[in-house]
């Protein structure tokens, strides 16, 4: 088992994200964001956040991203910050658009703007959903009657508190996430080979805006953690050239190496995040190797102190614990020079 916390939204330097939201006259919205989608699903998350704020469907949000001609510059799809920082910017921009539409819809419905809410593609009176007007009609009314098309922009920069030079105290991050992972391993004490059978991963990411994407991030992070724990290692020769520069001998987990993964999303809400969300990307990888190495210790009583915990290292540690001499792990070739590793057994 291993536990961790991980910071989201650094404040050591300016860390802004910006967004522009525009309500269209057909009831759809357009979101401009500088962030990059690399498969993690962040544009889906940003569309969901924008849609939730405007009371429309996720499919009705057109996301324009990562285009320096049209979108605001973004600090980056890095540091597990997109849901929290860019998500806050998108929500704030959408909120501005919503409030502009409330001002337009209030006289249409004969109420004050603060009595309105945006829901199910309509601007409606709180508590009286039958008194409502379609959001497309509000957007069109704003354009052709009041002359104030609903367009909003906003930026979010996590609040900074300077670190005290004397004590080092301050507020270095916007918020924090927490996780525990538990690994079940099968260690062959005659070969040192470790098989990870199962990992249970319990993650706090604030509100899980899209649980399926959270699961995908956790499962992917765990696969990287399994490789980090047991397989992946860059090896150099004495001249500093990498001797395993391709996937033939830099070994990463295949579908056959992956354990059964059980994802537990902890129910939580962070008041500083968009709809309570924080983040989930990098944290998923943090506790995996530690959990696996603790499980190896639990199984055969040896502490492996350098990664990856190859069969050779685990076998040598088991033999050392039993007081038997084994020769050091064989080297891969005459040129090979492993990076200095501490003794695997303690």
């Amino acid at each position: 088992m291993a536990c961790m916390w991980y910071p989201i939204g650094f404040t050591v330097a300016a860390n802004p994200s910006s967004a522009v939201v525009k309500m269209n006259e057909d009831g759809t919205a357009t979101l401009l964001t500088g962030t990059v989608e690399t498969g993690q699903g962040s544009l889906t998350i940003l569309a969901q956040i924008t849609a939730q704020e405007l009371g429309i469907a996720t499919d009705d949000v057109h996301v324009v991203s990562a285009d320096t001609d049209t979108t605001p510059m973004d600090t980056g799809a890095i540091a597990s910050r997109t849901t929290y920082v860019t998500g806050n910017a998108a929500r704030l921009a959408a909120e501005k658009v919503k409030l502009m539409m409330f001002d337009v819809a209030a006289p249409m419905l004969g109420v004050k703007a603060h009595q309105l809410e945006a829901k199910d593609h309509r601007i409606q009176v709180k508590g009286y959903p039958q008194r409502s007007v379609h959001i497309a009609d509000v957007a069109n009314h704003a354009r052709v009657v009041t002359g104030e098309p609903p367009i909003g922009s906003a930026s979010f920069n996590p609040a900074t508190v300077a670190l005290d030079p004397e004590t080092g105290q301050g507020k270095p991050f916007g918020t924090y996430v927490y996780a525990t992972q538990i690994a079940e391993v099968d260690v062959d004490d005659e070969t040192g080979d470790v098989d990870v059978i199962r990992i249970v991963a319990s993650h706090d990411c604030g509100t899980a805006i899209n649980p399926m994407l959270v699961e995908g991030q956790v499962e992917g992070g765990i696969s990287m953690g399994v490789g980090f724990a047991l397989q992946e290692e860059i090896l150099f020769d004495s001249a500093g050239r990498q001797i395993n520069p391709n996937l033939t001998n830099y070994i990463m987990p295949t579908s056959l190496d992956m354990p059964e993964v059980e994802v537990d999303i902890v129910d939580n809400y962070d008041p500083t995040g968009p709809f309570g969300a924080k983040g989930v990307g990098e944290p998923t990888l943090v506790p995996t190797a530690a959990a696996i190495l603790n499980a190896i210790h639990n199984a055969v009583g040896v502490r492996i102190t350098s990664l990856p915990a190859t069969a050779e290292k685990v076998f040598a540690a088991i033999k050392a614990k039993r007081g038997q001499h084994v020769p050091p792990p064989p080297l891969g070739g005459p040129d090979e020079h492993r990076l200095p590793n501490p003794s695997p057994a303690t």
Partner: peptide
Amino acid sequence: IRDALGGNLCRCTGYAKMI
């Protein structure tokens, strides 16, 4: 299924949702 995907590397997903 795991065996059939054994020759296809994926760095992102951990294969679970594919399976």
